[in-house]
């Protein structure tokens, strides 16, 4: 579904990713772990099409029905979203004046149009959204509040998963969705993600801690350090990291600065 080859990314002249290779297949859950500053979030943002990052080498191919083998990096953010890629933001933005329901409906209808489906009318749309609200244990009043404005940290994260549940992406990338959540909220979020698991879908979990992986069990775990994947393994690797930390995986001279040519 996703094929990343030798991906190099910089911000300004500072390299952040220094050659990432990753294959994600339909039905799989991948966890990308790593210490702060390892480039995890950069990878997530680049996949979603955030401006301000320069891809200096490598390619990302997204193997969807409609976009077979197309270079993902050439697509605008909204084209990626319509092709089924969803990024749950680490820091969801507040958008005063724009109601949640407005965002959800505009987004869902543009995704449906892309898929060749008809737009939902207001009633059908509400029915769809309500079932997803229930899944995440959210009150209907959430729909009429401005997007994330005045939401608590936990509410924002749940709102991201709500958007994901409504848009039903094929590839979901969750950027530190577990950070700042208490245990109950974490379970709710995990429940929402698990409910979306499907043989046709893939999930990439970007996380610093193993905690979330107790609730969403990954098929593959990758450790990112110094802008590279330094180790890959199965769910056991995450447990090992929990015990031993990241230190043993990071080469002594592993700082990115020293890797510069």
């Amino acid at each position: 579904m996703l094929e990343i080859r030798n991906l190099h990314v910089s911000i300004g002249d500072r390299p952040i990713l220094a050659g990432i290779d990753l294959d994600v297949k339909a039905g799989e859950v991948h966890a990308i772990m790593g210490p702060n500053g390892s480039g995890k979030s950069t990878l997530a943002q680049v996949l979603a099409g955030r401006e301000g990052y320069a891809v200096t080498a490598g390619s990302v191919r997204y193997l969807d029905r409609d976009l077979v083998g197309q270079d993902l990096l050439a697509l605008a953010p909204e084209q990626r979203a319509r092709a089924g890629i969803f990024l749950a933001f680490q820091y969801p933005l507040e958008i005063p004046g724009v109601a949640n329901v407005q965002l959800l409906r505009s987004a869902l209808n543009s995704v449906r149009l892309q898929r060749g489906e008809s737009e939902l009318d207001a009633m059908d749309f509400l029915d769809t959204v309500k079932s997803k609200l229930a899944l995440l244990d959210m009150d209907e009043s959430f729909l009429y509040r401005a997007v994330n404005e005045g939401f608590s940290g936990g509410e924002k994260k749940r709102n991201e998963i709500l958007q994901m549940a409504v848009l039903e992406p094929r590839l979901a990338i969750l950027d530190e969705t577990d950070s700042g959540l208490d245990i109950d909220a974490l379970k709710t979020v995990a429940h929402g993600v698990n409910a979306l698991k499907h043989p046709e879908r893939a999930v990439i979990l970007v996380t610093h801690y193993q905690r979330l992986l107790n609730y969403i069990v990954p098929d593959h775990v990758h450790v990112l350090a110094g802008g590279r994947i330094v180790r890959s393994g199965d769910a056991g690797l995450a447990l090992e990291l929990e015990d031993r930390g990241y230190g043993w995986l990071i080469p002594e001279s592993g700082s990115l600065e020293e890797m510069r040519p």
Binding site: A48, G49, R50, E51, A76, P77, E78, R80, A81, R82, F86, L87, F89, P92, L93, I95, L103, S106, A107, L108, S110, V111, Q114, Q163, L167
Partner: peptide, 12 residues
């Protein structure tokens, strides 16, 4: 904010 909305499939 524009990016956030675009990442949800909404045209720029």
């Amino acid at each position: 904010q524009v990016f956030y909305l675009r990442s949800r499939g909404i045209a720029a």
